[in-house]
Design a protein around this nucleic acid. Structure first.
Lengths: 143, 143
DNA sequence: TGAATGTAGATAGCATGCTATTGAAATGGA
DNA sequence: TCCATTTCAATAGCATGCTATCTACATTCA
């Protein structure tokens, strides 16, 4: 009981995720973007226009979460929403020039955060860490 | 670039932590407590009265985060705040009978979430997972 | 075709977490 | 003792994430 917390995967996962987020926030704040916005940009930098529903699925968040994140990004001049030609309910999300220009610096910053986090781990350990997290994610999604 | 996200420790950590939180939320909602409240209760169930500052340090959150969480717990009848005898700035946090009564069921639920998350992993893999997360936490705290 | 059903997105309301600021109280040193 | 500094907690303001609900549009099937 006394060290339930310290040996709890859930507690460590929460703490680790908060540190990842705050570290990334610190590194990309100067670019004018926040962590959740960066994840959306990662998707959009892949090239094609995306529907809002597609982004929601890709980042594994709820529809309302994505709607709010995209509203902030539109407010900040990072994206534009266009009505879909084929489905009047749907919105196409596309990058502004401002957001295009951030790609290199933002990805470098995020890669740096991952490097910091995994410092001192062997390639094998890093790989296993990713595999273990993916497995835990599948387990929780199934449960 | 195209699979930066899928192989990013930060993305996986965020997703995993959200799944831990939502799974725990689902399992303890019937007890009338939320995940952050559960973490505070875990500390308080250890026995002694705690100062608010001590809880803040123990759960590794910011002072304002703890103040808000404790305000909700007081509102919900889980804790009481008492002025410290020795320091008029400080607040002692203590459990209500209602919160005392939840200990067994809540800890069982949380242990179940960890079991679900780690299902199919060997004892060695579980141990390494905790060690890796602790290492990443130290790395990010240092960075 | 027309009604039932399903899907896309917005919005309300809430919890958690952060930074920044403020006020009150304690502390340490001149 | 008195002032500067530090510490404890509250609060404001914001981002992220969730569930629930609503509107609008699309699809399906009788």
């Amino acid at each position: 009981m006394s060290d339930f917390k310290q040996s709890s995967a859930g507690f460590l996962a929460n703490h680790m995720a908060r540190l990842f987020a705050s570290t990334l926030h610190r590194k990309i704040a100067s670019l004018g973007i926040a962590p959740a916005q960066f994840m959306v940009l990662l998707e959009l930098w892949q090239g094609d226009e995306r529907t809002q529903a597609d982004l929601t699925a890709a980042l594994a968040v709820e529809q309302a979460t994505m709607a709010n994140t995209l509203a902030r990004m539109e407010r900040d001049g990072l994206i534009e929403k266009r009505p879909s030609q084929t489905d009047k309910r749907s919105k196409m999300i596309c990058l502004t020039a401002k957001a295009e220009a951030l790609q290199e610096a933002a990805i470098a910053a995020a890669a740096g955060v991952n490097d910091t986090a995994l410092a001192g781990l062997t390639a094998k350990d890093r790989q296993q860490f990713l595999v273990l997290m993916a497995r835990v994610i599948r387990n929780l999604q199934a449960g």
